[in-house]
């Protein structure tokens, strides 16, 4: 009787497994094929690339696109800005999140509950784009590199993640340090910080990816200062330019060379800025699940 039941369901089981396997294989391919496609197009013969003849396999492999673009001053500058903001912005954000996340777990603090709400509630409202812009202007942070860094130091969501994580650490560890006469700073540095590594790794990735990918703040705040444009902002400009050219080309017969180089340039810059993410990301992946589970649901 029981065996029967199993036999009956196994037919459906196999069908489901096949369907499931096919679905996930397809979706995974859809997710990663574009990156492969971009990559083979940046290392193949430029003439073939421009006429759209590189589709599944690279041909005439060369890396001159990358070396050529690295020499473009405008891009080098943008890369420098992007790296600087990623490093400085992420470091300041992570340290702040860790420290503030630690402080808000201290019941002894004057007005703790109010302070925590004061910080967290800012996740749910904002004054709007124009008032924000005028505020940044008023504080002297437009057309100023620090405009990338300072406003992004306090990130309420990351503070919640750290706070929740610290609450899951046994209190005795901290208390024993206090018994030995350590102050808040020492306890934080010697006990809490090392224990928080997994969650700090998670928010480091969030912060770094956020800074690396940011472009709207560059577009809105740095209008008058092209030397402060980020890499993504440059890419945005190339893409806008290239797609406009594409329009014109179809209508009349303009110089086709421009289009060719535009396609290659935008593809190469794109791939160049995806590669660092692809390199770092898989190593951090294992931390996400735990960190997110603790933080996001409890919010």
């Amino acid at each position: 009787m029981k065996l029967d039941h199993y036999k009956k369901s196994s037919g459906g089981d196999i069908a489901f497994n096949i369907f499931n396997g096919v679905f996930f294989t397809l979706f995974t391919i859809i997710c990663i094929f574009p990156f492969y496609y971009l990559f083979i197009n940046t290392i193949s013969d430029n003439e073939l690339v421009s006429s759209g003849r590189i589709n599944l396999l690279p041909q005439g492999i060369h890396f001159t696109n990358y070396t050529a673009l690295m020499q473009a001053a405008e891009l080098g500058r943008a890369l420098f800005i992007t790296i600087s903001r990623t490093v400085l912005g992420t470091a300041s954000m992570v340290l702040t999140s860790a420290f503030v996340g630690y402080l808000v777990t201290k019941d002894a603090m004057f007005g703790r509950k109010f302070i925590y709400r004061f910080i967290i509630i800012t996740m749910y409202f904002n004054a709007g784009l124009i008032p924000w812009f005028m505020n940044m202007h008023m504080l002297g942070l437009t057309n100023n590199f620090w405009g990338y860094i300072i406003p992004a130091i306090v990130q309420p969501f990351n503070i919640i993640l750290v706070k929740t994580y610290i609450e899951s650490i046994p209190k005795e560890l901290e208390e024993s340090a206090f018994m030995d006469g350590a102050g808040y700073f020492t306890t934080f540095r010697a006990i809490v910080l090392p224990l928080c590594k997994p969650i700090l790794a998670t928010i480091t990735v969030f912060g770094a990816v956020g800074h690396w990918n940011a472009f709207t703040d560059s577009i809105i705040l740095m209008q008058a200062e092209p030397t402060l444009y980020t890499l993504q902002h440059r890419l945005y400009l190339y893409l806008q330019f290239a797609s406009d050219i594409g329009d014109v080309l179809r209508e009349g017969s303009l110089d086709v060379d421009l289009m060719l180089s535009n396609r290659v340039v935008s593809l190469t810059v794109s791939m160049g800025s995806i590669i660092p993410i692809l390199c770092v990301y898989p190593f951090m992946q294992r931390y996400f699940q735990k960190g997110l589970m603790l933080g996001a649901v409890k919010g």
Binding site: F27, Y37, N41, V49, Y236, G246, S270
Partner: peptide, 25 residues
């Protein structure tokens, strides 16, 4: 792992991907 990768690239890069795949060439 592979299906979360697109989440980590910016919208400019998504547009770039779109451009690479859906434009005339």
């Amino acid at each position: 792992t592979l299906t979360t990768i697109p989440n980590f690239i910016s919208w400019v890069l998504v547009y770039s991907v779109a451009f690479a795949i859906f434009s005339t060439e």
